[in-house]
C-alpha cells in the first residue's frame, strides 16, 4: 500500500527518450560527418516518438472515459475488419505498382544493384505474405 507499482511501459518510453537525447547530442558533435546527421535524425525521431507517447499516456491517465473510448474504438471488431481490409487492398495495390516501378527503374538506366535490391524487397514482402498465409492455414 502506498507504493506505486512500477510502470514498465513508462520506464521504457523514458529510456528511449533519454537515448534519443543522447544520440542527438552525440550526433551534433559530428554533424559534418554523414553518420553524425543520421544520429541526430535518429535521436530526434526517438525523442519525438517517446515524448508524444508519454504525453498521450499522461492525458489518458487523467481521463479514464477517453481512455476507454479509444480502447473500444481500437478493438471494435468492425474497425479491425475495416482496417484489415484497407491493409489488404494497399498490399494488392503495392503488388501491382511494383511491376511498372521496376520497368521504370530499368528504362531510367538505374544501376543494376538498385534494381535487384528493389526486386529483393518485393520478393521478401511476398514471402512474408506467403509465410503468414501458410501459418494461418495451419492454425485455423
Amino acid at each position: 500500500m502506498g507504493v506505486r507499482k512500477l510502470d514498465f511501459r513508462k520506464i521504457r518510453y523514458i529510456s528511449i527518450l533519454l537515448l534519443g537525447i543522447v544520440l542527438a547530442i552525440f550526433g551534433g558533435f559530428f554533424i559534418q560527418e554523414r553518420w553524425g546527421g543520421i544520429l541526430v535524425g535518429l535521436g530526434a525521431g526517438l525523442f519525438g516518438m517517446s515524448g508524444a507517447q508519454l504525453i498521450t499516456e499522461r492525458v489518458m491517465q487523467r481521463n479514464p472515459a477517453l481512455q476507454k473510448k479509444i480502447s473500444i474504438e481500437q478493438s471494435d471488431e468492425r474497425n479491425v475488419q475495416i482496417n484489415n481490409y484497407a491493409k489488404a487492398k494497399a498490399f494488392e495495390f503495392a503488388t501491382f505498382l511494383a511491376l511498372p516501378f521496376f520497368l521504370i527503374l530499368v528504362l531510367a538506366d538505374v544501376p543494376l544493384s538498385i534494381v535487384l535490391l528493389s526486386i529483393a524487397v518485393y520478393v521478401a514482402d511476398y514471402a512474408v505474405y506467403l509465410w503468414f498465409l501458410n501459418k494461418k492455414m495451419k492454425d485455423i
Partner: peptide
C-alpha cells in the same frame, strides 16, 4: 448498447 457491448456506436448502427 454500444457501451454495454464494448463496441463503437457505428458498429451498432451498421
Amino acid at each position: 448498447l454500444a457501451d454495454a457491448l464494448e463496441v463503437s456506436r457505428q458498429t451498432i448502427s451498421s
